[in-house]
Design a protein around this nucleic acid. Sequence first.
DNA 1: GCAAAAGTGTTCTAGGTACACCCATGT
DNA 2: ACATGGGTGTACCTAGAACACTTTTGC
Lengths: 222, 222
Amino acid sequence: MAYRYEYPHPAVTTDIVVFTIRQDELEVLLIERESPPFQGAWALPGGFVNPEESLEEGARRELAEETGVSGVSLEQLYTFGEPDRDPRERVITVAYYGVVPADRLETRAASDAAALAWFDVQELPELAFDHAHIVRMARERLAARLDGSTIAFQFMPEMFTLSDLQRVYELILGQALDKRNFRKKLVAAGLVEDTGEERRDGAHRPAKLYRLAGRRGVGAIR
Amino acid sequence: MAYRYEYPHPAVTTDIVVFTIRQDELEVLLIERESPPFQGAWALPGGFVNPEESLEEGARRELAEETGVSGVSLEQLYTFGEPDRDPRERVITVAYYGVVPADRLETRAASDAAALAWFDVQELPELAFDHAHIVRMARERLAARLDGSTIAFQFMPEMFTLSDLQRVYELILGQALDKRNFRKKLVAAGLVEDTGEERRDGAHRPAKLYRLAGRRGVGAIR
DNA sequence: GCAAAAGTGTTCTAGGTACACCCATGT
DNA sequence: ACATGGGTGTACCTAGAACACTTTTGC
């Protein structure tokens, strides 16, 4: 039941920063640690990489096991390996980030029954290890990748209004955008297409529903 | 003399892609492997991370030990961890890349006397492990970071001509650039400053020598 | 004087930014 | 009828792209 090596080997983990937008806030999924170190503190989901799985598979598995979130596309963020980042032993962590649409946040109770919650990125609690650093870097990366990718659409359900999409950009970039310019750019880039449907949800003109251009129903992005 | 753990731990290494420009070519530093696997094949410098050093320190140390190259600023590139990327055991590698100026390429003989050589990135030999993949990714990253950073200047000696600098851009981007627009952009960005000196090296008008703006003599970039 | 690289401005185009009003609905 | 968010076009400005000739030197 012991594994031995001729030279010292560090432990390798993955940590995953999952973003969503709820209640007009950019939020991150955290779990409460049930055992030391940092017992009771909030931390990113993640865990040890198994010998037979790739890093991304490990991240995906841990995320599903600990939070019930699956089917998210993950991007590698950075690898953190300061010798003292974990007080127990040398732990190197490969961080990933991803986005879940607000309409399917079924974070089923974690298998190990640990507490699980979404936090506004603006008001995070004290985080375990160097996780605050990881989240900060993930935010920066998310903002940097917004233009020139379709990440923003990953926050959206299949059909969405342009106002909703604009709100995603504004929350991530942290600044207001001009409505007309925003729409013009999307149309010019050919990113969205009209579904022909509308949504009415208040005392105002109904909003047209769009989808990411290129996929009708189910299909590949890009 | 054996290290034991309750759970299996992968080995963790760093690999370093060092670029330079020599003979009007973008080149990469490789070492010849002296032992299996891939004995005799060319590979990136790198090796196991020690327990008490950070990942970047490990990369820097391995680079110095194996190639004699030091004082290079390294950027983390990506972490590669496919389960079968090393036939011996599970090895996860954190890849870094960096740039050395052509005027101090003192690649002193490696401590372990392995062969060491610069290769044109266009004509690489067969590389060990997934190192071809790593080099490809490093090239893309280098090109992507060219604008909006001062990486290009790391290829240059302290003083350089604008034609030399332009050649760096052209080699990395793989396309010819307009001389006037190139100079205009550098000046507009305030990146270079005239040293007042000239270089004459042929039957033509001497070229003015510039340096990276902001540092007179020795000083910090940015 | 000729070959060879250094140096230098202007015009055009496209993309980004600023900006204000009418429209369709629910109550 | 009024409050609420949805939807639309034009003018300006700036950054990037295209483009050709003169200068200074070594031989």
